[in-house]
């Protein structure tokens, strides 16, 4: 029995002639939280759109609960909670109306109290329209609706967009507790990495046109290191050195990330004829790893 809730097979997509990615493959097993991380424009929303059936990929396919993403049956859609980029919800409705509307589509599975539990934390009147709410309040409404829907899979597109730190933390904590206690599968994208460490189990880090890393977050953080060493000021360092990510030289200080142990890194530096001194390695958090892998620019 296939345990994967999401399967993306050889996904390739172009916008016009611009390649977004080629042969993207990944799976999300049941009960896991997978984060698709990448800088803006690397194809996160494209992937979410393909996954939720709102974009036809150039080639390849995406299966959700073993159904093609663009032809998911209504019954299966009940099992998928979708959060659109920017926490978009029907702006013309208020808190009560939107709950009343959605509940009609999920008889037997709708958890009204989950929604209103979260809504109580918001300081908004029940009749206040969504278009009159702040980004943070809107995010809670969108999250509340997904929690009330109680789906098996949550697909969240750039949930951190426009949220201030407090709401972002609230969102992450709520989501983590909910997903873990109820064994939910979550697929999310974000361009703010800070809170991801506490939230996701596995990550895919995307760069323009390719996947940089695809592994459990624990493995990533235990293997990736930041290296620093001193080099002569006139030392020329290539931009692309195999296994060393984004080497960056500030006068005499050389800095880069790598998954290789220090002995291996020394060998690589020597092979590249870099006259280094005092090579030091340190563990880093997810945000630093992300920047190290994707570069600052």
């Amino acid at each position: 029995m296939n345990n994967n809730v999401i399967e993306c097979i050889n996904l390739t997509h172009y916008y016009g002639k611009r390649l977004i990615y080629k042969d993207l493959n990944f799976n999300v097993p049941k009960g896991k939280i997978l984060g698709l991380l990448g800088k803006n424009g690397t194809g996160k929303t494209t992937t979410i759109n393909i996954l939720s059936g709102y974009l036809k990929p150039f080639s390849g396919k995406c299966l959700i609960f073993n159904q093609e993403a663009n032809a998911i049956r209504p019954e299966t859609r009940k099992r998928i909670g979708l959060l659109i980029e920017g926490h978009v919800q029907y702006q013309f409705m208020n808190i009560e109306q939107i709950e009343k509307f959605y509940s009609a589509f999920f008889p037997g599975q709708w958890k009204r109290e989950a929604y209103y539990g979260l809504m109580e934390k918001l300081k908004v009147a029940p009749k206040q329209k969504i278009n009159k709410m702040s980004n943070g309040q809107r995010s809670q409404v969108a999250l509340g609706l997904i929690l009330a829907q109680n789906p098996e899979l949550l697909v969240l597109d750039d949930f951190s967009l426009g949220l201030d730190p407090g709401y972002r933390r609230l969102f992450v904590e709520y989501l983590r507790n909910y997903a873990k206690s109820e064994n939910k599968t979550v697929f999310l994208t974000s361009h703010i990495i800070q809170d991801m460490e506490q939230l996701i189990d596995d990550c895919i880090i995307m760069d323009y046109g390719k996947i940089l890393v695809q592994m459990p977050i624990k493995d990533l953080l235990s293997t990736i290191k930041r290296y620093r060493c001193y080099v002569p000021e006139r030392q020329v360092v290539k931009e692309n050195i195999e296994k060393l990510y984004h080497p960056e030289k500030h006068k005499v200080l050389l800095e880069f990330c790598s998954f290789e142990p220090i002995e291996e890194v020394e060998k690589i530096l020597k092979k590249e004829c870099i006259d280094f001194k005092n090579l030091k390695c340190e563990n880093i958090n997810l945000e630093d790893a992300f920047i190290g892998l994707t570069g600052k620019y």
Binding site: G53, Y54, K78, G86, Q89, Y90
Partner: peptide, 18 residues
Amino acid sequence: APEMHRKCLKLTLHLPYE
């Protein structure tokens, strides 16, 4: 027009209904 505003239609089409 409100359905097309910020692609709200995605929400509508995601409803469990044909």
